[in-house]
Simulated scan of single mutants.
Amino acid sequence: MRFAITTIIGALTLAGCVQNADYQAQRDAQARRELASALGDRVPGKPQDCINPGFTDGPQIIDTRTLVYRQGARLYRNDLASECPSLAPLSTVIVEMRGSQLCRNDQFRVVTPGMSIPSGYCRLGKFTPYTRAKGG
């Protein structure tokens, strides 16, 4: 009897892992589609440490490692310094800027809808500008 219970628990645990892996694969595929849709036919430029936050929309949360900021026709892809597990669609990103620009290593926290306590700190990475190809 003990063997049967252990086997059932093991099977349920394995099934949970498979479902989690399937869910993560679906989230990753969705994130790739959203990023491709946001960037469109734009081409990347040289990554930079800071951007001017004036006239900037965003961020658009792509996944737990990627944010997109818009400045008119130009987009800035920010690949975070490390994963920020709290990032999810509809979350609010609260950045603690240390100057007049939004920069690599600035820290931010995430507030999830329905919650009032922000997440732990996450850090911004470099900003890669994306612009439309000229003469295309």
Rank of each mutant, 00 (worst) to 15 (best):
M1L: 12
R2M: 13
I5K: 11
T6F: 14
T7D: 12
T7A: 15
I9F: 14
L12N: 03
T13L: 15
L14D: 00
G16L: 05
Q19P: 00
Q19D: 05
N20I: 03
Y23N: 04
Q24L: 14
D28A: 10
A29D: 01
A31M: 01
E34D: 08
A36F: 05
A38K: 12
A38Q: 10
D41W: 14
V43L: 15
P44Y: 12
P47C: 10
P47M: 11
D49N: 14
N52I: 10
I61H: 02
I62V: 02
T64K: 13
R65P: 01
T66A: 06
T66K: 12
L67K: 02
L67H: 05
V68W: 07
V68C: 05
Y69G: 00
R70Q: 09
Q71A: 10
G72K: 08
L75Y: 02
R77Q: 08
D79H: 15
L80W: 04
L80P: 00
C84H: 00
A88Q: 09
A88N: 04
A88H: 07
P89R: 12
V93Q: 04
I94P: 03
E96L: 15
L102R: 11
N105H: 06
R109Y: 04
R109Q: 06
V110N: 04
S116K: 15
I117L: 14
G120H: 08
Y121R: 14
Y121F: 15
C122V: 02
C122Y: 04
R123F: 10
F127Q: 00
T128E: 07
P129M: 05
T131R: 14
R132N: 07
A133F: 14
G135P: 00
